[in-house]
């Protein structure tokens, strides 16, 4: 039996229109803050000490001496030559580092104090692209 005076239960229908507004605002926030850009770069193979172990510094270890205006390439003590950036790239490619044993892939980079990062980066990227392992040396 129905109670006398009981209120009739109305349909509960919450107003959901503002929900989609909030959702759309959140979407705009995420679109603006998300970085979908994937950076360009080169993974550098560097020994964890960054300095070449003594046994790697054999007579034929390629060495790149980098100064403000010169790139001097040599193999150990011999064949010291001044190269352009393109010549250095082809010289490194000739070595076919990926076919060598890991301990024979080292390229010693000697950098003089005034060299800017951009110049160092060109050389490091060229060595990495050729499959070499960068070993840093103080000049």
């Amino acid at each position: 039996m129905k109670r006398i005076g009981a209120k009739k239960q109305g349909d509960i229908s919450p107003d959901l229109t503002s929900f989609s507004d909030i959702a759309n605002l959140l979407i705009i926030f995420f679109i603006l803050t998300t970085s979908l850009v994937r950076p360009f770069g080169r993974q550098m193979d560097m020994p964890s000490s960054a300095k070449p172990p003594e046994q790697q510094k054999s007579a034929d270890t390629p060495t790149v001496r980098l100064t403000v205006d010169k790139i001097v390439f040599s193999e150990g003590e011999k064949n010291e030559r001044e190269l352009t950036m393109d010549q250095l790239r082809s010289e490194l490619w000739k070595r076919n580092f990926p076919s060598l044993k890991p301990e024979r892939r080292a390229v010693v980079v000697e950098t003089s104090p005034d060299v800017k990062y951009e110049r160092y980066y060109h050389v490091a990227a060229a060595i990495a692209a050729a499959g070499g392992v960068i070993a840093i040396m103080e000049e």
Partner: peptide, 17 residues
């Protein structure tokens, strides 16, 4: 660069193509 190298982490040096 030396510090990151010493930490043992693999490194990507980023640049503009």
């Amino acid at each position: 660069i030396e510090a990151i190298s010493e930490s043992g982490a693999k490194m990507v040096l980023t640049g503009e193509p």
